[in-house]
């Protein structure tokens, strides 16, 4: 049973939805820029193509680590999404699954760091060290923001948070709104989108950790990112909007919420230039942490 959950929901459903999300992102980007944008199946075709390409292993790289890094990241995302799906539709999770998810969400970043250092390319290791700094920067406000629903629901289980929202979603409270703002900006950094695409800055360090990857390795990384692009908004919907509801009119609401979050992320990414790593660190440790802390305090007071 666990295996079916892992393969069907954790991997297949998330991958498909993630690729669709990435299509939405590319299409919205294109529309903002007066372009037509790619056809609907484009992300799938890209993936198939990359899987069929040759893998070139750079001479300076440590072979084993270089090849296993993308798998590590993908595994992390699969486990996270399985927990979310299972909690949402099938069974109660285990105590403290919220904490486990937070930890597992760091694994994709970790895999990028490992990949960067294993590539043996100066640009890749520069990208890896930037990723490291960025992780340190956004983790604190991210966790504080996600703590708000835990406090409001008075439960550290995902199912508990979902249950507490049957009467009213957390996004309706002041603390919820503040936390969502912080969380979305942190998601932006987690996904490495402009303005926080510092580790992968294409025009500075040539996609950073991914510079040496080709073929299937790159495909898995791209897939990982796309799945993350689905999982993170999904997680936010569970925490702040009462989860996915598939009955009647609520289905429409769910889709609207989801597309709304994706669209906000895309619009932020298209209306800002990239910031410097020191500016990003200052931004997350300064105003973002402050707002998140205020949200936590408000939540403790039941607002």
């Amino acid at each position: 049973m666990t295996f079916i959950y892992l393969v069907v929901f954790g991997f297949a459903a998330t991958a498909v939805l993630g690729l669709i999300t990435s299509w939405i992102d590319r299409k919205v980007t294109a529309r903002v820029q007066y372009r037509v944008g790619p056809p609907f199946l484009q992300p799938f075709i890209d993936l198939v193509k990359l899987l069929g390409k040759e893998t070139v292993i750079p001479s300076g790289a440590s072979r084993g680590v270089f090849l296993s890094a993308p798998l590590l990241g993908l595994t992390g995302v699969i486990v996270v999404s399985t927990i979310l799906w299972v909690n949402q539709f099938f069974a109660e999770g285990f105590a403290g699954d919220w904490i486990v998810i937070i930890y597992l969400l760091a694994i994709p970043s970790l895999s990028l760091i490992i990949a960067g250092f294993a590539s043996g390319n100066p640009l890749a290791s520069l990208g890896a060290s930037r990723e490291m700094k960025l992780v340190i920067a956004y983790e604190l406000p991210f966790i504080l923001a996600l703590l708000v629903p835990v406090i409001s629901a008075n439960s550290i289980r995902i199912s508990g948070i979902l249950e507490a929202q049957t009467t009213g979603i957390f996004a309706g409270s002041i603390s919820g709104i503040l936390a969502i703002i912080v969380a979305i900006l942190c998601v932006q950094a987690k996904l490495a989108f402009v303005p926080f695409d510092i580790p992968e800055a294409e025009t500075e360090i040539v996609e950073g950790p991914l510079v040496e990857y080709s073929g299937p390795g790159l495909a898995i990384f791209k897939l990982m990112k796309n799945m993350l692009f689905f999982v993170l908004p999904f997680f936010l919907i569970i925490l702040f909007f009462g989860g996915l509801r598939l009955d009647g009119i609520n289905l429409l609401w769910t889709i609207l919420e989801y597309v709304g979050i994706v669209a906000i992320i895309t619009v932020i990414r298209n209306t800002n230039p990239r910031v410097r790593i020191d500016q990003a660190v200052r931004f997350f440790w300064g105003p973002m942490t402050l707002i998140a802390a205020v949200a936590v305090i408000l939540a403790l007071n039941g607002l």
Partner: peptide
Amino acid sequence: IERFGMLLVGS
């Protein structure tokens, strides 16, 4: 040309 799936890549 993104209409045809073409992208300009850096690496």
